[in-house]
C-alpha cells in the first residue's frame, strides 16, 4: 500500500505543477481597453498611411472651427448654376413681378415651420451669391455649415468632433469630413422613409 500511496503523492504534485504552470500570465496587460488606449497613445507618432489619395478628385478646403482643423469639400463648384447672379441680375422682388419663367419651382421648403423659416432666412434677396446669417451677416456658400450651426448647435459640436456626419476618404489622416449639405438637402433636411437596401434574408419562410 505504501507504494501506491507514494504514486498518488507523486501524481498529485505533478497535477499541481501542471495547474500552476498553465495559469494565464497576463501581468503586463492593461486593466481595461481605456487604460490601454491611454497608455499606448501617450507616445503616438502618427501613421505612415494617408487617406489623401482617396479624395484626389474632390476639391477640398481646410477649415478651422474651435480646436478642430479639417477639410471639407468645396461647395460652389458643385452647385449647378452658381453664380446665382448669372440669373439673379435684379433684386428678387423685381424678378417676381415681371412674369418671367418661374425658377426653383421644384423646391418645397420642408425645414422647420413657415413661422420660423422661409427662403430669406438663409438667402439674401439682395445678394444671391452669398448666404445670410440671422443677424444679416454674409456667409459664403462654401461655409454653409455656419448657417446651419446657428440653430443646430449640438449637431455642430458633434460634427466638429466627428460624432455627426461622415468621413471622406477614410480614417487615416488628413481628416476630411462631409459638410452639412453633402448629406442633408437644406430645403428638406429630413431623411425619407424607404425600403431597406437589402433584407436580412430573402427566404420568406424565415420571416415573421
Amino acid at each position: 500500500m505504501n507504494k501506491s500511496n507514494r504514486i498518488i503523492q507523486v501524481l498529485g504534485v505533478l497535477f499541481l505543477i501542471i495547474l500552476v504552470s498553465s495559469c494565464k500570465h497576463k501581468e503586463d496587460e492593461y486593466h481595461s481597453i481605456t487604460d490601454k488606449i491611454r497608455a499606448k497613445s501617450k507616445n503616438y507618432h502618427g501613421v505612415t498611411i494617408s487617406s489623401e489619395k482617396y479624395f484626389d478628385d474632390i476639391k477640398m478646403m481646410e477649415i478651422t472651427e474651435g480646436e478642430h482643423t479639417f477639410l471639407i469639400p468645396e461647395r460652389k463648384s458643385q452647385i449647378k448654376s452658381f453664380k446665382c447672379t448669372e440669373c439673379h441680375t435684379k433684386p428678387l422682388h423685381k424678378l417676381q413681378t415681371e412674369g418671367v419663367q418661374k425658377a426653383h419651382w421644384d423646391i418645397a421648403l420642408k425645414h422647420a415651420d413657415l413661422n420660423t423659416m422661409n427662403c430669406i432666412t438663409c438667402h439674401n434677396g439682395e445678394n444671391m451669391d452669398e448666404l445670410k446669417s440671422l443677424t444679416g451677416n454674409q456667409i459664403d456658400f462654401n461655409k454653409s455649415y455656419k448657417l446651419c450651426s446657428q440653430c443646430h448647435t449640438k449637431q455642430f459640436d458633434d460634427w466638429k468632433g466627428g460624432a455627426h456626419g461622415k468621413n471622406i476618404g477614410g480614417w487615416a489622416p488628413p481628416r476630411a469630413a462631409m459638410t452639412c449639405v453633402n448629406c442633408h438637402n437644406p430645403h428638406k433636411p429630413h431623411f425619407e422613409t424607404r425600403w431597406p437596401a437589402r433584407f436580412n434574408t430573402q427566404k420568406i419562410i424565415d420571416r415573421k
Binding site: Y44, N167, W171
Partner: peptide, 15 residues
C-alpha cells in the same frame, strides 16, 4: 464612426 484609437486627434477618440 471608425478610426484609430491611439490617435488623440481622431474622430473616434472625440466620440
Amino acid at each position: 464612426v471608425f478610426g484609430n484609437l491611439l490617435d488623440p486627434d481622431s474622430t473616434i477618440r472625440w466620440v
